[in-house]
């Protein structure tokens, strides 16, 4: 397994370089270093000298990808792309364009993101699987029919709608929890309740339907018929046999997102005032802060790759037939 993991990590390097290059290209198609300088320096009284000074201090006064004036290897290394990319591969994210330490920001914002992401993930998994199993249990009855109808309706509605309705009903009308905000320690619970519920409900339609399909597929397998023929109650067939055998598709969808829980949700964090990494990314995009954008994209790509590796490893745990080699 170790060899497999090492091989996957090595494969990840060109993927990360590619993602980094793509981010770089997309960012600088829309923004120039001059635009970035102006964004940081403000609108009033900005002189060309101030812009040049800002660029020089942050290394944005060099060519983007190829330095024709440099010698030999420096033609490639004395460029914005090279200088801004290399350090990231040793997790040195540097400073944001307004001078803050990005690693420090990521560390301090990871916890609020996780505080929402983890409960949404765990609670969501339990709720979605339970609902899917219920629909499967009552398949071909009105419960299954209306369950699917409700799922389709729920998945047709934007998360933003759930956020606004949730805030309106639960916070504004019924006064149960604060509309938005965040607290430290135990104080965080009252702020997290609503975003977690909204996060779970926001995905209930699509996820419950997907799990229902997975379980129904398993229901048609021969071992299920055997279990029934042996006289097992239906609930035991479902919860003991079908659920266990459906773990591979469940893990495919679930484990891969585990590392991404750290990155937070752009929309939920923004509306509920949660100071996580999702809102950090949005702020960076809005303020054209390339240093933060590339760091977050790099981190996201890396965590996604980690998620995929973890998924592969988890297969070996739930299915003894799977071997990593």
């Amino acid at each position: 397994m170790l060899n497999y993991i090492i091989r996957r990590v090595v494969y990840a390097l060109p993927v990360l370089i590619g993602v980094n290059l793509l981010t770089f290209a997309l960012f600088f198609v829309v923004n120039t270093p001059d635009d970035m300088a102006r964004m940081q320096l403000g609108i009033k009284y900005v002189t060309p000298e101030a812009i040049e000074k800002w660029k020089a201090e942050r290394g944005y006064n060099k060519p983007l990808l190829f330095n024709a004036e440099a010698e030999k290897l420096e033609k490639l290394t004395s460029t914005i792309f090279f200088e801004k990319s290399v350090a990231m591969f040793v997790f040195d994210f540097g400073r944001s364009d307004d001078g803050r330490d990005i690693a420090h920001e990521i560390r301090s914002r990871m916890l609020p993101s996780l505080a929402i992401g983890l409960p949404v993930f765990v609670l969501g998994l339990v709720v979605y699987i339970t609902l899917a199993l219920l629909m499967v249990f009552f398949r071909a009855t009105y419960i299954d029919f209306w369950g699917v109808v409700v799922c389709v309706a729920l998945m047709s509605i934007s998360t933003l709608f759930y956020i606004i309705v949730g805030q309106f009903l639960v916070s504004k009308l019924w006064h149960w929890v604060p509309i938005s905000g965040y607290g430290n320690g135990a104080d965080a619970a009252k702020f997290l309740l609503l975003p977690v519920i909204v996060g779970v409900i926001g995905n209930v339609g699509s996820s419950a339907r997907w799990y229902r399909t997975v379980f129904l597929e398993e229901m048609n397998k021969e071992y299920v018929r055997t279990a029934r023929a042996k006289g097992l109650p239906e609930r035991l067939v479902l919860f003991k046999h079908v659920l266990r055998n459906a773990m591979i598709p469940i893990l495919t969808g679930a484990v891969v997102v585990v590392p991404l829980l750290f990155l937070g949700s752009l929309l939920i964090e923004s509306f509920f005032g949660i100071p996580g990494l999702g809102s950090y990314t949005i702020d960076a995009i809005n303020s054209q802060d390339f240093a933060v954008v590339r760091a977050m994209v790099f981190l996201g790509s890396m965590l996604y790759i980690v998620g995929l590796i973890l998924t592969d490893i988890s297969y070996t745990l739930v299915d003894p037939r799977v071997r990593l080699n």
């Binding site: 606004i164 805030q167 504004k172 938005s180 905000g181 923004s270 005032g273």
Partner: peptide, 16 residues
């Protein structure tokens, strides 16, 4: 000073 990026929560909290 609390950070509120969105206008809806900001307005509702004022009304509360």
């Amino acid at each position: 000073f609390t950070r509120e990026k969105e206008s809806i929560p900001r307005w509702n909290k004022f009304l509360q």
